[in-house]
Design a protein around this nucleic acid. Structure first.
Length: 592
RNA sequence: GGUUCGGUAGCUCAGUUGGAUAGAGCAACAGAUUUCUAAUCUGUGGGUCAAGGGUUCGAAUCCCUUCCGGAUCACCA
């Protein structure tokens, strides 16, 4: 029995008995008792005054007395202003503790039967991943884990933007000045090599624009007339016509990029159930639009282009098909959403995409709704803010973009340095050490990013994120490792661990409360799609343990029963921490 | 300008359906340790919750206005 449920029932019972009336269950408001007062849970009596027709204090007193008399789980109660603080008996907490200790896979909610698709990452194949992508990937990944903990069947998908003018830019630059360079001939990672030529293209473009304006051409005209841009556009046309030479080059260079991406994903601990490519999906949605046009939902302009009028909904008119019949971004997204909901019978579809596309998703849902698809309401845009550096925004032009691979490497090096300096890993084989440094470095990075509310613009300070103290991933990892080590020692000593009916310290009750909250937190976080809830929970739990351990050196305890109880408690903490760390993606290798 | 999301300690961030004296970490200062891993723990200082008004027993939280910042408003994706 949960404390909340208990009070909920008892309070209703009490009010029915004392005031002879049934009240709306919404009026029963509980909260955890604040630390400065005695008690475990608090009933707020202000909403009850209408029924009791008495002062807050008197009402609290009456309800408290009733509950105390009619339950042996309540040890005592006190009244402060309008707040009724109730303290449970030790036995009550022991029961809860015992239930959690014996539960299998605590924190894993029962199967919901729902299938949820999470689309995230969605890179372009013309340049390597950077810090912004990292936020996207980490969010997508942990939301997927979180939803799995909620019992849903989750599909992780990636939609790679592998076509379009920007890809042709890299291709053209490589053709012109690449001298046949390949990742293997240069030793450069494929995505970085292609990115290099994307930059080269832009440099050349800038140069040509400058030359044209020097000859007297207006700037905006020059931007359109630059020969290299014309060439890129011609290349795109050739690609669309299936020109063999262009398509082969496209395949070759994209192949390099995919190899590079695979490495980056692997280093982040991320994978997908399915990868979609825009080159294969960009024609989807046309039929949908044409059907909508036939049904009079959309309108056609004189040039043949098709639009959806959303002005009645406070938005603008949105283009769905160009005059020449070719599709735009929106067309494709309409089509892929339709296809995915049909194929996989999705109950929900989450898109992890930056907040610069808020408008796009607003329109997407609205247009689908207009087409009569009720599942449009099951689309959720998990929108996240930009990542900035302490010195300001990242700007590719100024070279202040933080590259994903560099960052992961940096985190690894720092983790290694710090860990080795402590000199406790001397007996660990080198390959295990490497694995460990990876997870610590990555744990720092992941936790630092996930703990921030997604919709906020965040500042990423590399120095702060690799701190190992305080509210950080490594602190949680370390605490977890510490508990494991204590438990191992206990096993070596042949000490028992079991839940026994011993007296509980206040700190222990606090920990049991926290543990008991875990499934509630999972559910709450799942509804909001917010893994940040889990990160702060994990930190609280780790911190509680640290304080607890500091106060009660467990292995030194002489009373056998108390010792067994304490070991059972910290084993439960480890269990919950393991689950939480799994959701955050910061689990350590077993050995540690 | 329209739409939209933010603004909480010096810095980075929490803050539950509106509840009691708004919390962590970092940084600063002062302490603790016969421990399993000190990557720890305790304490101190630090706040006009952007500003003003409203709703009510009660507001960082809900409503309105203003100020500041981001994003967006393409036949790009």
């Amino acid at each position: 029995m949960n404390p909340e449920n208990f009070i909920f029932e008892k309070a209703q019972e009490a009010i029915a008995a004392i005031y002879n009336t049934n009240i709306d269950s919404k009026l029963i408001q509980t909260q955890a008792t604040r630390k400065e007062f005695e008690g475990d849970i608090t009933l707020v009596t202000f909403p009850l005054l209408k029924v009791s027709k008495k002062s807050p204090e008197a009402t609290a007193q009456e309800v408290g007395e009733y509950i105390k008399q009619h339950s042996n789980s309540v040890e005592s109660f006190n009244v402060v202003k309008g707040f009724l603080n109730i303290k449970f008996s030790t036995g009550f907490w022991q029961n809860i503790f015992s239930d959690i200790y014996n539960a299998n896979n605590f924190g894993q909610l029962p199967p919901s039967g729902k299938t949820i698709m999470v689309e995230f990452s969605s890179p372009n194949t013309n340049k390597p991943l950077h810090l912004g992508h990292i936020r996207n990937n980490l969010l997508g990944w942990s939301v997927a884990r979180l939803l799995e903990a909620n019992g849903h069947n989750v599909m992780r998908v990636n939609l790679v933007n592998d076509r379009g003018i920007h890809i042709c830019k890299s291709m053209l630059a490589w053709q012109k000045m690449g001298n046949g360079e390949t990742p293997s001939s240069t030793g450069i990672k494929g995505d970085h090599l292609v990115g290099k030529y994307y930059v080269a293209f832009n440099d050349e473009l800038k140069k040509q624009i400058k030359e044209l304006t020097a000859k007297g051409m207006p700037n905006d005209e020059a931007e359109k007339q630059a020969p290299i841009l014309k060439e890129a556009q011609a290349m795109l046309l050739k690609w669309e016509q299936g020109d063999k030479e262009v398509v082969d080059l496209w395949k070759k260079m994209n192949g390099w990029v995919y190899e590079g991406f695979d490495k980056t994903y692997k280093s982040l601990g991320i994978s997908f159930d399915r990868t979609y490519y825009e080159s294969q999906t960009y024609l989807l949605g046309k039929a949908l639009v044409n059907e909508g046009l036939k049904r009079g939902i959309f309108e056609q302009h004189d040039d043949g282009s098709v639009w959806c009028d959303l002005t009645a909904d406070g938005l603008d008119k949105k283009l769905l098909l160009r005059g020449d019949g070719t599709s735009v971004y929106m067309t494709q997204d309409l089509g892929t959403a339709h296809q995915r909901f049909n194929t996989y019978k999705l109950d929900e579809h989450i898109y992890v995409v930056g907040n610069e596309q808020n408008y796009h998703f607003q329109v997407l849902k609205l247009v689908l709704k207009k087409l009569g698809f009720n599942w449009a309401d099951s689309i959720y845009h998990l929108s996240y803010g930009m990542v900035e550096l302490p010195e300001g925004k990242m700007k590719s032009r100024e070279g202040t973009v933080v590259d994903a691979d560099d960052l992961v490497q940096d985190m690894y090096s720092t983790a290694k340095e710090t860990s080795l300096a402590l000199g406790r890993l001397d007996d660990m084989p080198t390959n295990e050490q490497e694995k460990l440094f990876e997870m610590i470095g990555l744990g720092a990075l992941k936790y630092f990013i996930i703990k921030v509310d997604p919709k906020k613009t965040m500042v990423f300070d590399p120095k702060e994120s690799i701190d190992f103290n305080g509210n950080t991933g490594p602190f949680i990892q370390y605490t977890h490792a510490r508990i494991k080590s204590i438990l191992k020692k206990a096993v070596d000593q042949g000490v028992k661990k079991e839940v026994v009916s011993a007296e509980l310290l206040p700190k222990e009750i606090e920990i049991i409360k926290l543990l008991n909250n875990f499934p509630i937190k999972i559910k709450e976080a799942g509804i909001d799609h917010s893994p940040a809830v889990i990160s702060s929970y994990a930190y609280d739990l780790a911190k509680e343990f640290s304080q607890y351990y500091h106060d009660t050196s467990i292995l030194k305890e002489e009373n056998v029963a108390v010792k067994a109880n304490r070991l059972a408690l910290i084993e439960t903490i480890a269990k919950v921490l393991t689950k939480a760390m799994g959701i955050l993606g910061i689990s350590l290798p077993e050995r540690m």
